[in-house]
């Protein structure tokens, strides 16, 4: 598998259409069209790769491109991926199916979540913000607006802390659930193992005799 197919957070892996080919469509319109076809997948397993996701989604329609979102520090997959489908209908189909059913991509039992993409999520996409002007300024304490902005900044800091707390909370919840489920899993496996071991015993044969008809 080629490593450079899929680098951290650029849009190389996804074959996206830009306004370059057909100049009749403006980039804004092209982005609009693109976003309509894209789906964002969440809660993916860390070992899943472009091909895994592609095969998983291909049962709902043709996948044109998949892009993994990676961590900047470790280049590890963060569990979020973008997928571009052939059409808007297929995208909606994917979103609906993943909402109704528990699609487990690659590993179980955590199901993947899908939401329709939006332009804000497509960070650094070449189509985004084509002819936009961004204004920026450094507000010094002398500025009359400084007080308000300072207070807003404090508020935003608190908000950021809230978000961090929420993420932390979710992580803890997940960990808790995982431990519970690990226990359940272990119990189930122990049970199975026990049954496997009892296959040759007399009691098992007796049970088999009684329920034999049912099994067949």
């Amino acid at each position: 598998m080629k490593r450079d197919l899929d680098t951290w957070w650029d849009w190389r892996a996804a074959t996206t259409t830009t306004g370059d080919e057909d100049s009749s469509i403006s980039p804004e319109a092209a982005l609009e069209l693109l976003v309509q076809k894209c789906v964002v997948l969440d809660n993916l397993s860390p070992v899943s790769y472009v091909h895994t996701i592609r095969t998983a989604l291909e049962q709902f329609g043709k996948v044109r491109g998949v892009k993994l979102v990676r961590d900047c520090q470790t280049c590890l997959f963060t569990g979020v991926a973008f997928a571009e489908m052939e059409s808007k209908e297929q995208r909606d189909q994917v979103v609906k199916e993943l909402k109704d059913y528990l699609l487990m991509i690659g590993q179980m039992p955590r199901p993947a979540r899908a939401i329709p993409a939006c332009p804000e999520l497509m960070i650094d996409h070449p189509l985004r913000s084509f002819s936009r002007k961004v204004s920026a300024r450094l507000v010094t304490p002398k500025n009359p607006r400084y007080a308000q902005l300072r207070e807003t900044a404090i508020q935003e800091n608190i908000h950021y802390a809230h978000q961090s707390a929420l993420i932390q909370h979710r992580k803890e919840e997940e960990l808790k659930l995982e431990k519970t489920q690990q226990r359940i899993c272990q119990e189930n496996i122990d049970k199975l193992k026990f049954l496997e071991g009892q296959k040759s015993s007399d009691a098992f044969k007796l049970v088999k005799q009684i329920h034999g008809g049912l099994r067949q």
Partner: peptide, 11 residues
């Protein structure tokens, strides 16, 4: 840092 240990629920 993101690591595999941060992913929960994949057995």
């Amino acid at each position: 840092k993101e690591s595999i240990e941060n992913f929960h629920g994949f057995f």
